[in-house]
Amino acid sequence: MVNALLIESCDFVSFPIGGQLSFARQMMMAFGNRLALVGVSTDDTPVGKWIKKDIDGIDYDYFAFAHRQVRGKKPSIPARITGYLAVRKFNKQILSKGIKCVFIQSPEILIAVHTWGWRSICYCFPGVENPLQMPRYGWGKMFAGLYEKKLFSTLRNVDTILASADDEAIADLVDKSCGELYSERVIKFPTRVDTDVFKPLDKNVVRAELGIVQTDNIIVSCGRLNLVKGWDFLLEAFKVVKRSNPYTKLIFVGDGEDRQKLNDKAQELGIESSIIVTGFVGADSVVKYLNASDLYVVGSLKEGWSVAMLEALACGKPIVSTAVSGARDMIVEGANGFVIDGRDPKQFAEAMNSALALKEADKVSLGIADKYTLKNLAIDLGKFWKPLA
């Protein structure tokens, strides 16, 4: 029996790369076809009608509201705008299933559908920062205030609000809402990690499979390559690390519109021979790169509760991160890594060198990851949202 719609601007398989797709797939693993999926088509899935679609061996009721091309380039029109318009276009068709409960992560989707007469809406903030404060499109910043006002007013129609963020970030969100939200209404709900997939593997074996030199220090960062992820900052810090650790490589696991800019910056800094960009790879390869590493790094300007950071923890890796939401919950200072305030490349590099020398980081990281295992997701969400109890 289908209990709820899951509406997301993704194909629920591999596009687009990021935390929202990861959490959508975690929802699918936890609830299976108790969810009907409303997303996009990146293959021959027809747009505009309900079909049965097999994903990972499970038949889902599936509705594609738009077709998307899988490419690294930034689209000329923001995906948030085209997604908003496409969902609204198919109002009647989406509702024709008669499902009256919906789970949403994307703010533009929530704004598009919140007046559709739902019995219950669960909205999960994938991160509580205003995305238009640091937009992919420069002109987007002029609409940041309007967007925030609209989102907060829309939340009046939502009965369950979750936030993949730490307590400090949630408090800031409540303050910004100008009375629309209060702290008791926003439930701290971290993302999860699949510890059946992301787990320790033999470092020597995976390095041999990936063609990585056994004696090198390997530093890894995962995710979409755009400026919000701070790849430029990581390159600056890595250049400092290379002075004391010459046999060190930095591997970016992922792809994105800034890939060429990253390569150009690495060449400008004279470290291009020590930088590897994998392009898009699946989870089976991501787990190998994590296990091949000696250190995981996060240089982001903002994050929700980082799924990639959880995956690194589940592989037993130390982490050095900027002070993004959730970092201090996942990193015990000096035990399994360091959280760095500010954006001083030298300070970050010092922390990277210190983290490479930590002796018991694996045990600490694995213990923290165990608190956020996917195995608990169904029970934990059911406590707060009755349709999936």
Rank of each mutant, 00 (worst) to 15 (best):
I212N: 01
R156D: 07
K188M: 13
E184P: 01
K199G: 03
T160K: 01
D159S: 14
P190E: 03
R185Y: 04
Q214Y: 10
L173A: 05
V213S: 14
N204T: 13
D202P: 03
A163N: 02
D159F: 05
T191W: 00
A208F: 09
D159Q: 13
S164N: 05
V213H: 11
A165Y: 06
D159A: 05
G211V: 00
R185K: 15
D196N: 15
T160E: 07
R156L: 08
N157G: 09
N204V: 11
K176G: 04
A169H: 03
D172I: 11
S183L: 15
A165T: 04
I170E: 00
L162P: 03
L201G: 10
E180D: 11
S183N: 13
R185S: 10
E209L: 06
G179L: 08
E184C: 02
N157H: 14
K199T: 11
D172C: 07
D202V: 07
R156A: 12
K203N: 04
D166W: 05
D202C: 11
A163H: 02
P200A: 09
A163M: 06
R207W: 06
Q214N: 10
N204A: 14
V158E: 04
S164T: 04
R192G: 01
D175Y: 12
C178W: 12
D196W: 11
K188F: 04
E180K: 13
K199M: 11
E184F: 06
F198T: 08
L173Y: 06
L181A: 06
E209D: 15
R192F: 05
S183H: 13
L201D: 08
N204L: 13
R185L: 02
V213M: 06
E209P: 07
G179N: 01
L201Q: 13
D194W: 08
G211K: 10
Y182H: 14
E209G: 08
F198L: 00
V174W: 07
A208Q: 14
D175C: 09
T191K: 03
D166E: 02
T160Y: 10
G211M: 02
A171Y: 09
F198W: 09
S183T: 03
G211S: 06
P200F: 07
D175M: 11
D172E: 14
K176P: 01
Y182D: 07
K199D: 05
S164K: 04
A169K: 06
S164Y: 05
N157F: 12
T191A: 11
L162Y: 07
D175T: 14
E209S: 10
T160M: 07
D202F: 01
T195K: 13
A171F: 01
